[in-house]
Design a protein around this nucleic acid. Structure first.
Lengths: 126, 126
DNA sequence: TCTATTGATCGATGGACATCGATCTGGAAC
DNA sequence: GTTCCAGATCGATGTCCATCGATCAATAGA
């Protein structure tokens, strides 16, 4: 019930007729989807999501030595996850002597967040 | 520069002393992170993200026969992606005769969207 | 009943990913 | 220099994932 008639199969349909014409999307939509999916993928691991969470909680820059003991994985694994986040453009780092400090890049999550938050397509900017 | 002193290593440090005490997070944070990461992971594929996008654009329910031709993958693959989205609790489906109609579950993305949108931890509800 | 259609499922395959231990790099203390 | 430490990288390993062709179940028309 409550089917959107616009998208219901166009005819009462004799078996064999294609049910509807394909809706073609402009290429830019696909590129945008790939960009946002890359961000979502990077956030699609509990450790990485928590890393971003911690970095956002502390608006400043956080030492890796503070991040590592938060998780039940080894240091190389945390380093790996931070690298994934950096490659996704979500965080960046800065070295200070022996230590490395990570921070969230502002606006890195803006596009994805905007898409997620918007309930209707009309609200989106191109 | 601009290091958050709260999180900088606590002492001037003789090499060998641990640089800082671990910050322990309550278990609920980890569970919440796993829940949100699961949603992010489901959205971490361009096809799935576009599927959700199309379903949200058309507030009603959309026939699978309308979704399949949108992508350069076979019908089993689209069906697989829809299943992943359904298992993540993001969409659900309903059969009408031969056709299956998919729709976005309201509030499925709310928690993740709220976390993503909030800039500071204080804005978050538990 | 027979046949055509939709959409889900199965099994296989190739590639990506999370994790680990070991190692490397380059600073800092002695 | 030598030694120690923080953090990144490497190589290996086991697991998960995206995709495909083939097939199946359910339904509707003939």
């Amino acid at each position: 019930m409550d089917i959107d008639l616009e998208l219901a199969p166009k005819r009462k349909r004799a078996a064999g007729t294609p049910c509807c014409e394909p809706v073609v999307y402009p290429d830019v939509e696909r590129v945008r989807a790939e960009r946002m999916a890359a961000v979502a993928k990077a956030l699609g691991d509990p450790i990485r999501l928590q890393l971003v969470d911690v970095l956002r909680k502390h608006a400043g820059k956080v030492c890796v030595c503070e991040l590592t003991p938060l998780f039940d994985v080894g240091q190389p694994t945390v380093s790996h996850h931070l690298k994934v986040l950096r490659q996704a453009g979500i965080v960046d780092s800065e070295r200070q002597g022996l230590w490395a400090y990570y921070y969230v890049l502002p606006d890195a999550l803006a596009e994805f967040s905007g898409w997620l938050g918007g309930t209707r397509s009309e609200e989106r900017a191109t």
